[in-house]
Design a protein around this nucleic acid. Structure first.
Lengths: 248, 248
DNA sequence: ACCATATTTGTACTATCGTCCAAATATTCA
DNA sequence: TGAATATTTGGACGATAGTACAAATATGGT
């Protein structure tokens, strides 16, 4: 990337010839993202990442100090833009008049950024969501903190918006269904043979598009389902059991 | 377990005093199951397992040859009973007269064994399902084969049964929704704070029960949702894209 | 061109990984 | 009991892990 003149943000010159090697730091981040989201955090070594990025293992340590630091930086890169996009789409969805359409728009506002958000890289959104899926399965400790402090607000906003569209359904049920949505979303992105060409899909996202439409359709129907028998629900009012951290 | 007299299946004597150390092999299997399902395959070392089982690392090699072999044996232990239970419940569900009730019974037949199947150990079902969830995220190669040859038949049977209850919905959509069900199921079991006391739930499974009821209710509604616009669906008829391995 | 700084390189350190193996011990059956 | 077998033990092997660090090189401002 030829080292920017200290203070101006010229980014246009880079990436002119596909992937040349504009910035080692970026190359490492991209390689780590790809490898982590494919094989998991523990299965990938710093040396694997360095090799994939065409860098020296020491360079990784130089830029990110530790392997955890590298993972942290990946999350920092994506969480902000992704949640910003979600907020924008959610705000737009809230303005939809028709109740049914509004609910669908809300769900879409949650799902879409998981497929398309993030950087300019193709498939950046799906790759990061795949990474989140794997990390949630591996129960990584470093990630848990970021998740809590980054996604909690957004998640509550979505639950609230859904609850406004479906006031007759107890919030507990909606939280569960939102939880299921995230699980379905994660699994869809993690199962490679099903969405293998997702990241290589054409710009209009027709390939990913179908998966999204199926997911939105199914989720809207699930959200609208009649709540469980209140007699049973009441039994479960025990504190601490109801999901408190849904959609994260 | 005091080494059986060569050919008789006396299992009653063992496990008399809680967990004494009836059989090292079983202890290793249990420890590995617990650790793998909590931290993932790659994050757990053979030494971790040996220590948790109160065994020597060499013992693990002796009984299972390799770490992969240990994982394989865990799957062998659970897949059979779990699929058998599913088949039984599915057969019973098929006999339900009312269409709505039947669909619900079918979904329940798929979900229930994931929580309760397997060995005599408490929470054996959830632990194994959690393991499957993590392995699917990590993309483990050893597991992919077992999954394909063990769950494919059962999965097709479920899709068929659902399709019979909802003949007006294209099979493709049902496959997607079954896929979402599995994702939701996995994520529910993998997120510990939400189902933390699942395995410690009372014998009637009230704690797990609520999660199951929420999942079944949401899934039935999702399955019944009107299919996507056929015009869009038709575009996606391209071979190889529609999920071919759902519910596995 | 020169200096200060930023980055990359190569290597080395320690820790831990999966696996192996010979010796020690426990168990079973004649 | 004694011989045969099954299991457990403790230590070792080479490979690879994450990280550290000094030397080498590239870069940017003057």
């Amino acid at each position: 990337m030829v080292r920017k003149p200290t203070k101006s943000n010229v980014k246009a010159d880079a990436k002119a010839v596909s992937t040349r090697k504009p910035n080692m730091r970026e190359a490492i981040l991209a390689a780590a993202e790809e490898l982590f989201s494919t094989y998991g955090f523990n299965a990938v070594s710093v040396r694997d990442i360095a090799q994939a990025a065409g860098a020296n293992p020491g360079s990784v340590t130089y830029h990110f100090k530790t392997k955890d630091g590298l993972l942290l930086e990946i999350y920092r890169r994506h969480c902000g833009p992704m949640n910003r996009r979600r907020s924008e789409l959610l705000a737009a969805a809230r303005r939809v008049r028709d109740l049914q359409d509004r609910l669908e728009a809300i769900v879409r506002a949650y799902v879409l950024p998981a497929f398309t958000s993030g950087s300019d890289l193709a498939g950046g959104g799906t790759r990061f969501t795949r990474l989140r899926a794997i990390m949630s399965a591996e129960g990584n400790e470093v990630v848990r903190k970021i998740i809590a402090q980054t996604f909690d607000d957004t998640s509550h906003a979505f639950i609230d918006a859904i609850h406004e569209s479906l006031p007759h359904i107890p919030r507990t049920d909606l939280v569960w269904r939102g939880h299921f949505l995230l699980g379905a979303l994660y699994y869809t992105l993690v199962t490679p043979e099903r969405v293998s060409r997702l990241s290589r899909g054409s710009a209009d996202g027709t390939d990913a598009g179908h998966a999204i439409e199926e997911l939105v359709r199914a989720t809207v129907a699930a959200l609208q389902a009649p709540p469980l028998d209140p007699a049973i629900s009441a039994l479960r009012k025990a504190p601490g059991f109801a999901p408190g951290r849904a959609l994260t």
